[in-house]
Amino acid sequence: MADPASLNTLAALDPVHGRTGAVGDMAGPRGRRPRRALSRGNIMLYGILLLVSVYYLLPLWVMVMTSLKGMPEIRVGNIFAPPMEVTFQPWVKAWAEACTGLNCDGLSRGFWNSVRITVPSVVVSIAVASVSGYALARWRFKGSEAFFAILLIGAFIPYQVMLYPIVILLRELGLYGSLSGLVLVHTIFGMPINVLLFRNYFAAMPEELFKAARVDGAGFWRIFFQIMMPMSLPIFVVSMIIQITGIWNDFLFGVVFTVPENYPMTVQLNNIVASVQGVKEYNVNMAATLLTGLVPLIVYFASGKLFVRGIAAGAVKG
């Protein structure tokens, strides 16, 4: 496309039209629409955005700065100042040396526990939820609506109410305290929201596509894997983000359903930060907190675009 500005210049140079100015008037305004960068609206808008950003980023700033300082410098008390002497010792200590209870191998143990909890929970819950959502959307069976309603009610019952019954249930199953027990709990608690998500997504996909596949002789699984799944990447990403961050950040289930050597990272972080013995090592605490928050942070940064696309998908046809 030609640059409108240069076209404008050419028109101005044209002797006949330049003199009469007729063409310019007839064709209406040309060139770039004038925009004032410093309009009152813009100042207002960016001012508020800046203020809100500072408000939200300040704690992060304090955390990062504190985690890079030595204890003597922290005792000086100026929490906003950048470190005079940068040290990574608090990070190393938080990861590999901090003590919780009898173990002194830092957060690394909790990190690997959390990985061992999150990965299978996410995989299993999404696998079950996507197939359930697909069945509820496309293979209505007798009582499927009632089943779905019951599932949704599950989303509204406070977790605290269910804690003790689940403890008993896990004990009877012989899974209490084990990682697989916690994986089972996370999978079940992920069901309502994820089934809802998948069901609505699949229900919004054109029904005739599903019918065409049935006429073509495809069954339940073939339609799911070959027709539905390739068309629903966004919703799988959304569900994955919800599950990864939710399960990684979980504290309650981790502390209730596991034993100390299986504690997830969040529980271990709490135990490090809330320890009442000895000197409070603020720099180590900050480093440990940042380490724990790193996984959800990376997930959000890496998939932010897909996340928005997935949430918006289905809102507009086509």
Binding site: P206, E208, L209, K211, A212, R214, V215, D216, G217, A218
Partner: peptide
Amino acid sequence: EPSERGIGMVFQSYA
């Protein structure tokens, strides 16, 4: 089943 009936179907939305 639809595929066992010896029918083929053409839909409005092409599908």
